[in-house]
Design a protein around this nucleic acid. Structure first.
Lengths: 346, 346
DNA sequence: CTGAAAGCGCTTACAG
DNA sequence: CTGAAAGCGCTTACAG
């Protein structure tokens, strides 16, 4: 049997309550005694029983807030699935998870959501942070005060947090480069369509890909790097513009959530001329494009996992005070070809 | 607050013990009373609290056995990592995990291991089953008696079990076909080196790949399908034989754990002639071959996940009597190119 | 600053 | 067949 608080209490000649207060630094223990108990616990290699901890915590009504940066899109629908899965798993501990959606990329509004959550006595927070000083400062302030914040899917520079859960964008860029190199056998004029660089990860990804091309793939030229918005019309216009201005493009990295309109723009410009397309993520539209051979491959970032992990990390912190060994919790990135799609699941 | 046994007891006008006995079919409750309690619990949508369950179970000394089919190899080293990760996570519930390694592919020996485990009062079992009537019958017998058995990494036909955790070999075959089609642009003479068909999943995988070629890839010919053993010398001989007998081979699916010797055989036969190689799994040798461009891509089966999931499923069963909704728990298969390898981690 | 007691929700000897 | 009580290990008012 493992060593318990009761056993430590016996050996130290104090009560269980005192051991608990000492080990969890709750104060109200004579410093010398606390120190003695802590040393003893270490010597005995005491590991608190997490199940008992979770059960005893049940009536405290702990809450975790999840704060998004947009109203919704297909990627975050999946993130939310993962969040809900984790929420269900931890519900027996009495910990609640509340999700707050934001006006698209509205930093003022997001800040209000944070304040709202805090006023509701939330004890931990996962946030898809909008890249604004407003948000950065608030997160830094929270972290300084020991409040656990997990950045979810979007990383921020010059900001402190308990953990970042999301894609390793630089590695994703490298993998995209390798994939495009493989598919094109090292010869391509590439048009890059990226989601907004307002989220710095997207910029890291493109830069990392381009770096890899310039050091490893002399035959691959990046003809254009174009940011595309979240909507169909905006995407159509940007894609059209890129294709018209760069008629040499024979390969495209397609990083927009708006698929139908962008593909129409490509076809309008290229006619029947062949083009190799590699995409990002796996919305229903992307799946369909894969299955109809309009896309050769796509790189996915396991959004469901991301949501799941973020909640689990906060849960661990709340129940066991454990911080992740590595604050950068990178979620796996996967190459998907059409044969990976289970048509039965569609 | 969720509904508890205590609350049901109050409403039903009985004690908590009686509710527990009724809901868990432990007998020693008057049938009418038991029925009434069960109905009530359903109406109230009672969900037992898994944390409390785990805690109360602590002193029962439950044990899970893991029974392997070989002494070791690099793939199963990773499977075991996953098993140990899960074992650590559940250790606070007092459930132990014991691992038993087997003489390589020795069904008699594996049967003895099963008996040994049972005599040690193990309450659940994960097994990498050797494809033999001896083992099949035993597993069927156990399952019939309500004893939870999870098949790990290897599936059996005509056998009943709580769950299978492992690769979806047919889908893996399809993905391999798609990958090879992509890499070769649909023109190849393929030599297939597969691990033993004694494990039927390996056969499913090859067959599924070949089916896909014949329906979707007219330009891809399968020149040879060769089984390779686990050791370097045997692999060398089989590879050499295949390459000598099929000089048209320009593409290889390399499914052997013995990398160095087989690659030597390939080189001895082909000289400087180029060959495209796609591999299976991700041992250190495969990693090195990827990084040196001797392998173009490999398909991995997340062995660590497989071990982890198998234990979690048995844990759920032991603590909550829950069976997985789908007994076929397929673990994800991933395409890996060299850019996916984090050289810092090697 | 410290301890005894009760509680989280489920389970299980034990007594009847 | 049934209930009261104690236990799993940690936490927390409460009394002192």
């Amino acid at each position: 049997m493992a060593i318990t608080i009761k056993k430590i209490a016996e050996i130290a000649g104090v009560s269980a309550g005192t051991v608990d207060r000492a080990l969890n630094n709750r104060g109200r223990v004579k410093p010398e005694v606390a120190e003695r108990i802590r040393t003893l616990a270490q010597e005995l290699n005491y590991q608190p029983n997490s199940v008992a901890k979770s059960l005893s915590i049940k009536n405290k009504g702990l809450k975790i807030a999840v704060i998004l940066h947009i109203v919704r899109n297909s990627f975050f629908d999946e993130v939310i699935q993962g969040i809900k899965k984790a929420a269900k798993e931890i519900s027996d501990t009495g910990i609640q998870v509340v999700i707050k959606t934001c006006k698209d990329f509205d930093a003022d509004y997001q800040l209000k959501l944070i304040e709202e959550a805090l006023s509701e006595d939330v004890k931990a927070m996962a946030i898809v942070p909008i890249n604004s000083p407003l948000i950065k400062n608030k997160i830094n302030e929270l972290t300084e005060n020991g409040f656990p914040v997990v950045l979810l899917t979007a990383i921020l520079e010059d900001t402190n947090y308990l953990a970042y859960v999301g894609c390793d964008y630089r590695r994703a860029g490298k993998i995209l480069a390798g994939l495009i190199n493989l598919i094109t056998r090292g010869k391509a004029n590439l048009g890059v369509l990226s989601p907004t660089f307002q989220m710095c990860g997207h910029l890291y990804r493109v830069n990392s890909m381009c770096d890899y091309f310039s050091t490893h793939c002399p035959g691959i030229q990046v003809s254009s790097i174009t940011e595309v918005p979240n909507d169909e019309i905006g995407t159509y216009m940007e894609v059209k513009k890129m294709m018209e201005e760069h008629s040499d493009i024979d390969t495209i990295l397609y990083g927009s959530v708006a698929v139908k309109a962008g593909f129409r723009a490509i076809r309008e410009c290229l006619g029947e001329k062949p083009v190799r397309i590699v995409a990002l993520d796996l919305s229903d539209d992307i799946k369909e494009a894969l299955l109809t051979d309009n896309i050769i491959a796509t790189l996915i970032q396991n959004p469901k996992d991301q949501g799941y992990r973020a909640i689990r990390i906060l849960f661990e912190f709340l129940t066991s005070n454990k911080k992740p060994k590595n604050p950068l919790c990178y979620i796996n990135t996967e190459i998907i070809v059409k044969e990976c799609i289970n048509e039965a699941e569609m």
